[in-house]
């Protein structure tokens, strides 16, 4: 199973998470988002970029509770809420946004 982008093949697992985090590009994010039925806006990018920064620092994808808290700390209470994040990523901010960000499935998400 793989995404095709500009002649390149990027492997993913049965749920669509890419297998090699280093193969991620912003163009690929757009393709994954499309598969998820998401039209990427600046607000979506803000969360996706935040997740990538979080992963770089801690080497894990955060659980949603932790993500909400961390976003609240950085962008304020309006964005740091379940409601805001679920509006952007209806199937779950941690899972859907992590997939678009090229990260593994959040730890603790079975």
């Amino acid at each position: 199973m793989a995404y095709q982008i500009e002649g390149k093949t990027i492997e993913h697992d049965e749920e669509g998470y890419i297998t090699n985090i280093n193969e991620w590009t912003s163009d690929l994010a757009g393709i994954i988002a499309k598969d998820e039925g998401i039209d990427m806006t600046d607000e979506h990018w803000e969360v996706v970029n935040f997740l990538r920064d979080y992963y770089n620092e801690y080497q894990i994808a955060p659980a949603v509770r932790v993500l909400v808290k961390a976003i609240k700390k950085k962008f304020g209470p309006e964005k740091g809420s379940n409601k805001y994040l679920y509006e952007l990523f209806p199937y779950g901010p941690a899972k859907q946004a992590c997939k678009i960000a090229g990260l593994p499935k959040p730890t603790g998400c079975v």
Binding site: E57, Y58, Q59, I60, P62, A63, V66, K69, A70
Partner: peptide, 14 residues
């Protein structure tokens, strides 16, 4: 192998 030592610093957020 994956260096998971940075993850201990995430515990506070959890």
């Amino acid at each position: 192998m994956k260096n998971f030592s940075p993850t201990y610093r995430a515990l506070e957020g959890y």
